[in-house]
Simulated scan of single mutants.
Amino acid sequence: MKSNFNIAILIDGDNAQPKILKEMLEEVAKYGKATIRRIYGDWTTSQMKGWKDSLNQHSFNPIQKFAYTSGKNSTDSSLIIDAMDILHERNIDGFCIVSSDSDYTGLAKRIREQGVFVMGIGRKNTPIAFIQSCEIFTFVENIYPEEELVPDEPKTVKKPSRKVSQVQQPKVEKVPTKEESKNLMIDKAFDISVDEDELAYVSQIGTNLRRIDPSFDTRAFGFKNLTRLFESLPNYEVVRKDFNGKMHALIKRK
């Protein structure tokens, strides 16, 4: 993306984690410059206290929205209205919506329909509809490992007594493992990206991986970038070529 690519960061303060504000900005900086920075919430509540210390440090504007109805807040609607105003002013090139709430699915779709870049940042429990509505979706667990959810304790299952007749269980369709899903996506992205010389640019594969799954992130598999991930795969080989004095990484199947 161009160096002057301007992005508006809109944070749902009721549905995001204040301690990773710095990491959020670093993630957005990969794609552009965060020119508009706003955090929405009811700042009269104790729930928003965690954001206050970071506001001035990272130059965010707090947007006050009162809860007009018990048990509900107006944060979602306020953020959406502001986003539409910013969209129509056309002063920015992209949006970053920080939330794990499916209420922003329609907003993300509307922004994309205008041909404007939209990314999301949220937890792994974010509904798939919101994730797929963004061009890029980054899980906070990938940029801040301490945010990993604590796994449930394994339950002890009692073995049936020998006296009890075994009832044949219906066959359950096998769900692909995380590793299998990764390999399937990579193979598909490679096939889309490969040229007639059976080579594919790493950057093009990365673009197609995001198109297949906006939440695809090499950090989820323990690698800093896509080149390192391909170097670990037995079925692929990384080839480096010099084009006009610049080294480019290409991928080919073994």
Score class of each variant (00 low, 15 high):
residue 58 H to G: 07
residue 59 S to H: 10
residue 59 S to I: 07
residue 60 F to M: 05
residue 61 N to Q: 09
residue 63 I to G: 01
residue 63 I to Y: 04
residue 64 Q to L: 00
residue 66 F to C: 03
residue 66 F to H: 02
residue 67 A to F: 02
residue 68 Y to R: 01
residue 68 Y to V: 05
residue 69 T to H: 08
residue 69 T to I: 07
residue 69 T to E: 00
residue 71 G to C: 00
residue 71 G to L: 01
residue 71 G to H: 08
residue 72 K to L: 06
residue 72 K to Y: 06
residue 72 K to V: 05
residue 73 N to W: 03
residue 73 N to P: 04
residue 73 N to C: 07
residue 73 N to G: 05
residue 74 S to H: 05
residue 74 S to M: 07
residue 74 S to P: 04
residue 74 S to W: 01
residue 74 S to L: 01
residue 75 T to A: 13
residue 75 T to C: 11
residue 76 D to I: 05
residue 77 S to Q: 06
residue 77 S to D: 08
residue 77 S to I: 12
residue 78 S to V: 01
residue 79 L to N: 05
residue 83 A to M: 06
residue 83 A to V: 09
residue 84 M to N: 02
residue 85 D to M: 13
residue 86 I to G: 02
residue 87 L to V: 11
residue 87 L to H: 12
residue 88 H to W: 14
residue 88 H to T: 13
residue 89 E to Q: 15
residue 90 R to G: 07
residue 90 R to L: 10
residue 91 N to I: 14
residue 91 N to C: 13
residue 93 D to T: 10
residue 93 D to C: 08
residue 94 G to C: 11
residue 94 G to A: 03
residue 94 G to P: 11
residue 95 F to Y: 05
residue 95 F to W: 02
residue 97 I to E: 11
residue 97 I to P: 13
residue 97 I to M: 13
residue 97 I to A: 00
residue 98 V to Q: 03
residue 101 D to V: 10
residue 103 D to R: 02
residue 104 Y to C: 09
residue 105 T to Y: 04
residue 106 G to D: 12
residue 106 G to L: 12
residue 106 G to R: 12
residue 106 G to F: 11
residue 108 A to R: 10
residue 108 A to K: 01
residue 109 K to C: 15
residue 110 R to T: 15
residue 111 I to K: 07
residue 111 I to L: 02
residue 112 R to P: 15
residue 112 R to Y: 06
residue 112 R to E: 10
residue 112 R to N: 11
residue 113 E to D: 09
residue 113 E to I: 07
residue 113 E to G: 14
residue 114 Q to E: 06
residue 117 F to N: 12
residue 117 F to P: 01
residue 117 F to S: 03
residue 118 V to K: 01
residue 119 M to K: 11
residue 120 G to T: 07
residue 120 G to E: 09
residue 121 I to C: 06
residue 122 G to R: 09
residue 122 G to E: 02
residue 122 G to L: 07
residue 122 G to P: 06
residue 122 G to K: 04
residue 123 R to T: 09
residue 123 R to S: 14
residue 123 R to I: 09
residue 123 R to L: 09
residue 124 K to F: 13
residue 125 N to W: 06
residue 127 P to I: 00
residue 128 I to Y: 09
residue 129 A to S: 14
residue 129 A to P: 06
residue 130 F to V: 03
residue 132 Q to K: 15
residue 132 Q to G: 02
residue 134 C to D: 08
residue 135 E to V: 00
residue 135 E to D: 05
residue 135 E to A: 03
residue 135 E to N: 02
residue 136 I to L: 09
residue 136 I to T: 06
residue 136 I to C: 01
residue 137 F to C: 04
residue 137 F to T: 03
residue 138 T to I: 09
residue 138 T to G: 06
residue 138 T to P: 05
residue 139 F to Q: 11
residue 141 E to N: 08
residue 142 N to Y: 09
residue 143 I to R: 00
residue 144 Y to Q: 15
residue 145 P to M: 04
residue 146 E to N: 12
residue 147 E to L: 15
residue 148 E to M: 13
residue 149 L to A: 14
residue 149 L to P: 10
residue 149 L to V: 15
residue 150 V to M: 12
residue 151 P to W: 15
residue 151 P to M: 12
residue 151 P to C: 11
residue 152 D to P: 14
residue 152 D to M: 15
residue 153 E to I: 15
residue 153 E to F: 15
residue 153 E to K: 15
residue 155 K to I: 15
residue 155 K to N: 13
residue 158 K to H: 11
residue 158 K to T: 08
residue 159 K to I: 10
